[in-house]
């Protein structure tokens, strides 16, 4: 193949003079250096050239390539400089940026995670328990008497499932996360500090503050010498981290069958509407609960607490209606 390399170089230089934009320059580049460009043809020819021709031809092709590349680079700089000097606007920089928007974790999940994080940092282990429970774990093991009203169909949902371990006992939808207490105590030995988040169910008529399904988090600490003052200290640390250091709190005596003494915790903060807002229940694990778990009487003491996830979220974010959580309007979901 015979090419007049000088002429080609000259022609290329002439062509380049006509180049005025990035687009022109790209066309020029493709003509010479593109996959089907002149240089590509030359290299293809080089492959089939005779042994004698190869060295000279190869050298010339390489010189041409270097020259063309140089020309393109030079011109590119030139174009840039021209552009810099002029004031032409190529972009409307005020148009909105485009991003791939990520999804949003449900506020209930976020609240559970936030609470679990606080306790996990204090050494708690997070556990889960079944939603469909036996009467034993939901009631008997929690020191709730056989004839207690909470066992009525008015307060607990029962399901049409066979009880595998005790055919005489009904299966139900757990009405609290507390049944996990005895499950965990049977499975592990103290010392233990565990947290159990999950769904619970109660046949309450639905309104702004009641739902037949909601979420609770149960906490349990068992060791040789756990004291009521430990319960107070632990929950004070927790609530201050969850809300803020300047909240006030109080422990008010209450009654739960599975703790003794039992308390409800109220909090208040500056600018809050009410004086006190009930936020959680807690107490010292009742000896009968230890008994149900098969622990020797008096060997361990423990503290337990439970809180409503929706209640905490409603309180933190000023949500007025609990149904908002379950409607899943995307305009709600995307706020958090």
């Amino acid at each position: 193949m015979n090419w007049d390399f000088d002429q080609i170089t000259q022609k290329a230089e002439e062509e380049l003079r006509a180049v005025a934009s990035d687009k022109d320059l790209e066309a020029f580049r493709i003509k010479y250096l593109g996959r089907k460009g002149l240089l590509a043809d030359m290299y293809a020819a080089l492959a089939t050239a005779s042994k004698e021709e190869k060295p000279a031809l190869g050298k010339n092709i390489n010189i041409l390539k270097t020259r063309i590349t140089g020309l393109i680079d030079g011109e590119r700089d030139q174009i840039k400089k021209t552009k810099k000097a002029s004031s032409i606007k190529e972009l409307d920089v005020t148009l909105p940026g485009v991003s791939r928007s990520t999804g949003h974790k449900h506020l209930i999940t976020q609240t559970i995670e936030e609470i679990c994080d606080i306790f996990e940092k204090m050494g708690f282990s997070v556990q889960e328990g079944p939603e469909i429970e036996s009467e034993f774990y939901n009631f008997d093991a929690l020191n709730i008497p056989k004839d207690h009203p909470s066992r009525d169909g008015f307060d607990t949902f029962y399901v049409d499932m066979k009880n595998k371990t005790n055919a005489g006992q009904n299966m139900l939808l757990r009405s609290q996360t507390s049944p996990a207490q005895v499950r965990i105590m049977q499975k592990y030995k103290p010392p233990m500090a565990v947290l159990v988040p999950g769904k619970v169910f109660r046949p309450d008529a639905v309104d702004a503050s009641h739902s037949f399904m909601f979420h609770q988090i149960e906490g349990l600490v068992v060791d040789k010498n756990i004291k009521f003052s430990d319960l107070k200290g632990l929950l004070e640390v927790f609530l201050k981290r969850l809300f803020s250091d300047d909240i006030k709190m109080r422990f008010r005596p209450h009654f739960f069958p599975f703790t003794e003494p039992s308390a409800e915790v109220d909090i208040s903060w500056k600018g809050g509407k009410k004086d006190w807002l009930e936020i959680m229940g807690c107490g010292m694990v009742h000896p009968n609960v230890f008994k149900a778990a098969g622990y020797k009487d008096g060997e361990y003491t423990g503290l337990a607490f439970g809180l409503g996830v929706e209640r905490i979220a409603m309180c933190k974010y000023g949500i007025k209606d609990i149904r908002t959580f379950y409607e899943n309007d995307v305009r709600f979901l995307r706020q958090f």
Partner: peptide, 8 residues
């Protein structure tokens, strides 16, 4: 987006 819906 994540949802939470009723189990029943």
């Amino acid at each position: 987006d994540e949802t939470v819906t009723y189990a029943m």
